[in-house]
């Protein structure tokens, strides 16, 4: 096993808070939510596991060392270890079940071939085709297929969720400070007013005239 400190990217004499922060940042980065239907999801999961184990190892080592009995959150990692297997309670036709399995295995070509062999194309067909497209990175086609599935069966939660995810432009990790740089035209006055409001809330005043 790798050195847990190097996995977390901190030095062995880092403080409790530093370790917690490093862990949080990493967990935010490799969280399963950032790798929904991503073809690399398995690697992210591995990474997440490694981080969780490292964090647990580090915090366990520390609690046994210090006699003060730190019992805060020895395995805070649990809060991030979410099971990712969704759709296990699937009850549909057997062909679709087989296709779903192929998609889950990552065997995209097989899934695509099976789908193309099906003549009658219902909502689920479009949904699965969308999943196949998404897995191979064809985002635009995926969105179109999901939309088709939703329009054919608007009550299905699974299809709607997939479309919603596409409409939101996916969900990905962004490091702090990178949001909207370059596009934001700095609205100086607005920012000042906002700062003023904050100040006033706290009893001060930044812009005396308003």
């Amino acid at each position: 096993m790798k050195d847990p400190y190097s996995v977390l990217g901190v030095s062995p004499n880092a403080s409790e808070d530093e370790i917690k922060k490093a862990y949080r940042d990493l967990a935010r980065k490799y969280h399963p939510d950032n790798y929904q239907d991503n073809p690399l999801a398995d690697l992210a999961q591995e990474k997440m596991k490694e981080i969780n184990e490292a964090y647990d190892a580090v915090s366990k080592g520390r609690t046994s060392q210090s006699s003060s009995g730190y019992s805060g959150s020895a395995s805070a990692s649990e809060e991030y270890s979410r099971s990712t297997s969704s759709g296990t309670g699937y009850t549909g036709s057997s062909v679709y079940a087989e296709i779903r399995q192929a998609i889950r295995r990552g065997d995209i070509n097989a899934a695509k071939q099976m789908l193309e062999g099906i003549r009658r194309r219902d909502a689920e067909w479009y949904f699965l085709m969308g999943s196949v497209d998404y897995k191979r990175g064809w985002i635009d086609e995926a969105e179109r297929n999901y939309r088709m599935a939703v329009s054919m069966d608007p009550s299905n939660q699974e299809y709607r969720q997939a479309l919603q995810y596409m409409n939101a432009g996916g969900s990905f990790y962004r490091p702090a400070g990178s949001a909207n740089i370059g596009r934001q035209s700095l609205n100086c006055c607005g920012n000042l007013l906002l700062a003023d409001c904050c100040c006033e809330c706290l009893g001060g005043d930044l812009v005396p005239c308003c």
Partner: peptide, 17 residues
Amino acid sequence: ERLLDHTRGLISSAYEL
């Protein structure tokens, strides 16, 4: 824009690994 953003998200999620 949404398409490019999503594509970029997939680039960064791969990069982080």
